[in-house]
């Protein structure tokens, strides 16, 4: 048969015959397989659950650390504001982790395809953007974090001990943040396809682009 003669009845017959061929060899009702399948589905989502739960727990620890330090100082100094930043970062971790966990819990495969796939693509996007937000800030955030931690551990004033080095640390952090952004853009230039592919495999840029592409595809599919 040639393609120009394509008749959809041929495809219908093909699907029926494929189904009949498969019917002779399947074992859909095996209960052990079903239990193993559910365990596999749950295991597949486990890294996401674990990662977000750990993020929420880390957020709680940051809040505890921040509150214990800023409530003891209340002097409007650098350490006080560092502890406030640690507190805010903890809240951010909890909010982003909670959003992802909530989105994950709301996914129901019995909903329509566009609803479920839209939720999955949106989940991936929020997960990637959230991960970048809580990760990239460490180029600078480690300074107030360490200052708060040292004060909480031993009442040491990190800023007083580091002196002018703080300015260098801030400059390095800002440079690192900008360099990360620049390298990300540079590596994705079409003139460097091999590097772009390697970066796709290694960093979240690809995941984000893929999530956005799927969202766009879904919108186009639903609205056309």
């Amino acid at each position: 048969m040639t393609a120009p003669d394509l008749d959809f009845d041929t495809l219908k017959t093909g699907l029926r015959r494929l189904e009949a061929r498969m019917a002779t060899q399947d074992s859909l009702l095996l209960r052990n397989e079903r239990r193993r399948g559910i365990a596999r589905i749950q295991l597949g989502m486990w890294p996401l659950w674990l990662g977000q739960t750990l993020q929420v727990l880390f957020g709680l620890l940051c809040i505890a650390l921040g509150v214990s330090v800023w409530s003891a100082l209340r002097d409007g100094g650098a350490l006080f504001y560092s502890a406030i930043l640690v507190h805010v970062y903890g809240v951010l971790c909890i909010i982003l982790g909670g959003i992802v966990l909530g989105m994950l819990a709301r996914i129901d495969r019995a909903e329509s395809l566009t609803q479920t796939q839209f939720k999955l693509a949106n989940l991936r996007r929020v997960y990637v953007v959230g991960g970048m937000a809580v990760g990239l800030v460490w180029w600078l955030f480690w300074i107030p974090f360490m200052a708060t931690l040292f004060y909480w551990l031993a009442h040491v004033d990190f800023y007083a001990n580091m002196g002018a080095s703080i300015a260098i640390m801030l400059a390095v952090g800002t440079f690192g943040l900008l360099a990360t952004w620049w390298f990300h853009r540079w590596s994705r230039n079409p003139s460097r396809p091999r590097l772009a592919r390697a970066m796709d495999d290694a960093v979240t840029g690809h995941s984000l682009a893929r999530a956005q592409r799927r969202l766009d595809e879904l919108k186009a599919f639903a609205e056309e």
Partner: peptide, 20 residues
């Protein structure tokens, strides 16, 4: 691959069954 997918589908159906 079809066997794997069929088993995954049946597992997903069984998991969703209480909410049917």
């Amino acid at each position: 691959d079809r066997d794997d997918l069929m088993q995954d589908i049946v597992a997903a159906l069984w998991q969703a069954w209480p909410r049917y």
